[in-house]
């Protein structure tokens, strides 16, 4: 298992006993992600600093918003095509969802120098691939996880999507009474 440097991970339900070091629990989460039969298992709720140095804590959004974790990289054309769609999604559903971009770029400079779009959601540089590892290992990007208000992974989407496609998915998880 990789060393988890400067990086706090909390498994929502099992709390501190699973924190950081147990390969068994990491394997458990790998199994949980992406399989229809094993949907609705807890997502890793992490905190990390974004590329601007601001702290991002997924726990802050739990129970309040749907969390959208988007793995991407500046080298990936479909990821770049998708970013304007995610920006629009964050803008339209700002009270209902929180998007977290997780960059798998090789250097922080690559991410910081990316100027095609002005992000309206935080971007974390996953320097050592830790977040990717905790989300089951990422070998295709873009990959996007939808985490419901209970902190459970409800969708794992591989490949670029349009605003309408994302909207269709997230509407399923926005509580009816507050549906846009």
């Amino acid at each position: 298992m990789r060393k988890l440097s400067n990086f706090k991970v909390t498994l929502l339900v099992l709390v501190t006993i699973l924190f950081v070091s147990s390969p068994i629990h990491l394997m458990g989460v790998e199994k949980a992600i992406g399989k229809e039969s094993e949907k609705n298992l807890p997502a890793f709720i992490f905190s990390a600093k974004d590329i601007e140095g601001n702290k991002v804590n997924l726990a802050d959004y739990l129970g309040k918003k749907i969390i959208v974790v988007n793995f991407w990289a500046t080298w990936c054309p479909p990821c770049r095509f998708e970013i304007p769609e995610l920006i629009k999604l964050q803008k339209v559903y700002k009270d209902k969802i929180q998007i977290i971009g997780v960059s798998l770029d090789r250097s922080l400079g690559d991410v910081k120098n990316y100027r095609e779009n002005k992000f309206n959601y935080p971007i974390i540089w996953d320097r050592y691939g830790e977040i990717a590892y905790l989300y089951g290992g990422i070998s295709s990007i873009p990959t996007t996880f939808i985490i419901n208000t209970e902190g459970k992974i409800v969708e794992r989407i591989i490949g670029a999507r349009t605003f309408e496609s994302f909207e269709y998915v997230i509407k399923k998880y926005i509580p009816k009474a507050t549906n846009k």
Partner: peptide, 17 residues
């Protein structure tokens, strides 16, 4: 295994290998 080793985009995913 799409997203878990099966890929259709080298530009996107080669770096993971």
């Amino acid at each position: 295994f799409i997203g878990r080793g099966v890929s259709f985009c080298a530009t996107c995913d080669a770096a993971f290998f």
